[in-house]
Each structure stands twice: as structure tokens, then as C-alpha cells.
Design a protein around this nucleic acid. Structure first.
Length: 199
DNA sequence: CCCTGATTCGC
DNA sequence: GCGAATCAGG
């Protein structure tokens, strides 16, 4: 892929909107975030404003360098740095011991068999979009077991904990949150439409 | 670990 | 000009 007018346009627009380089790269396709960042710099729009996302105020750029740039650089003193290859090993021949401490159960509550759907707060209070999204996602769920959950796997439980029909969503979480995007949507309601709970 | 942008430098 | 590799910070 090359930087056509259109693609540069998109780049500029998104960068201006505060989108991250990776998001832009994803949108454009065919390029990595590095490419995007590199282009951004070449275009001279390194610094953008707005509060979105990370803010790295690196204003340590005031070193007036002589016109003559010293090309002859000293050899890089490369410290012994390992470059671990990605190993997709999934042996797991041994049965797991005993799950003693759940990663982070959304609800610390004992759900008696026959009464599934722990966290889901009255489905009728959730926006249709979110619901649809959830149903969608649950089809694509990675169906992870308790021990397979990591810090960045969606911990939304699906199914009945008392049966074999139970697993966790396991999709990539939304940074910071314990759930994936879809589940965050239903888990963290804007706290509306819940008004009068008269009693 | 994942993510962010910044920089370097061979192509 | 391009962007992977690398760096540096969260």
C-alpha cells in the first residue's frame, strides 16, 4: 500500500480526531502503526491536541544541531537482549489442580444451578444494540476456562457455572476494563432508565 | 503484558 | 519517502 491522497486524508483526519496510530493503521489497512506514525512525522503533524488517549508531552526537543549532521555514529552497544519468539504452545496434558481463586469473578455470588445469567442486569433494561452485540460476541467467545483467563481476557461468564456449559468470554478486553467492548457495554450501564425504583 | 508515540536508519 | 526495529513512557 502507498500513501495516496485519500489515505493521507484519512490519516490526517483521524490523527486530528485524536485517534491512535494503531487505530488509524487498522482503519487504513495494509499498514502498521509504525508506518502511520512515521508518516505523521514526515507530514509534520507530530503534535496534536485534545485529551484523547495518551498524552506524551515530550518537549525535550530544543537541541539546535549544527548544519553538519555527524553521520559517523558509534556502534550500538547492544546489551544482551533476548528476542523471545512467539510460541503458540498449548500442551496442557495435565489436568489443572484445583481452581482456588477465581481470577476476578464479576459477581462474588453463589449462583445455584438452574438460575444462570449472573451479572446480566435485567435484559430488558439494556439497550438493544448492546444486547445484540452481546449475543454476537458470545458466539465468538473463546470459551476460556477459569485458569485461562488473563489480565486482558474478557471475564464475562457465559452459561451456567454448575454445568459444563460454562465458560468465559475471553475476548480481548477493553483496556482497563475486565470485559470486552460488548460486555463492557452491558456491564457498565450509563445508569439511566433505572430511575424510579419506588418501594 | 498491552498500549502509546518517537526515533533511528537501511532500503 | 517509507516503515520495521527499537526506544521510552503509561
Amino acid at each position: 500500500m502507498s500513501w495516496t491522497e485519500e489515505r493521507v486524508e484519512t490519516l490526517k483526519r483521524m490523527w486530528g480526531e485524536g485517534q491512535s496510530a494503531s487505530q488509524i493503521a487498522k482503519e487504513l489497512g495494509g499498514v502498521t502503526r509504525n508506518a502511520v506514525i512515521g508518516k505523521v512525522h514526515r507530514l509534520g503533524l507530530s503534535n496534536r491536541n485534545g485529551g484523547g488517549g495518551s498524552d506524551k508531552a515530550k518537549t525535550a526537543e530544543a537541541a539546535p544541531e549544527k548544519a553538519a549532521a555527524p553521520k559517523a555514529e558509534a556502534p550500538k552497544p547492544k546489551p544482551v537482549k533476548e528476542q523471545p519468539a512467539k510460541v503458540e504452545a498449548k500442551p496442557a496434558p495435565v489436568a489443572e489442580p484445583e481452581p482456588e481463586t477465581p481470577a476476578v469473578p464479576p459477581r462474588r455470588q453463589i449462583i445455584p444451578a438452574g438460575q444462570p445469567l449472573p451479572p446480566q442486569p435485567s435484559a430488558n433494561e439494556i439497550s438493544p444494540e448492546a444486547l445484540a452485540s452481546v449475543r454476537e460476541v458470545e458466539k465468538k467467545a473463546r470459551k476460556l476456562g477459569l485458569m485461562e483467563l488473563t489480565e486482558r481476557t474478557c471475564k464475562w461468564p457465559i452459561g451456567d457455572p454448575a454445568t459444563e456449559e460454562f465458560w468465559f468470554c475471553g475476548l480481548p478486553v477493553q483496556q482497563g476494563k475486565p470485559y470486552c467492548e460488548a460486555h463492557v457495554g452491558v456491564a457498565f450501564q450509563p445508569m439511566s432508565s433505572r430511575r424510579d425504583r419506588r418501594r
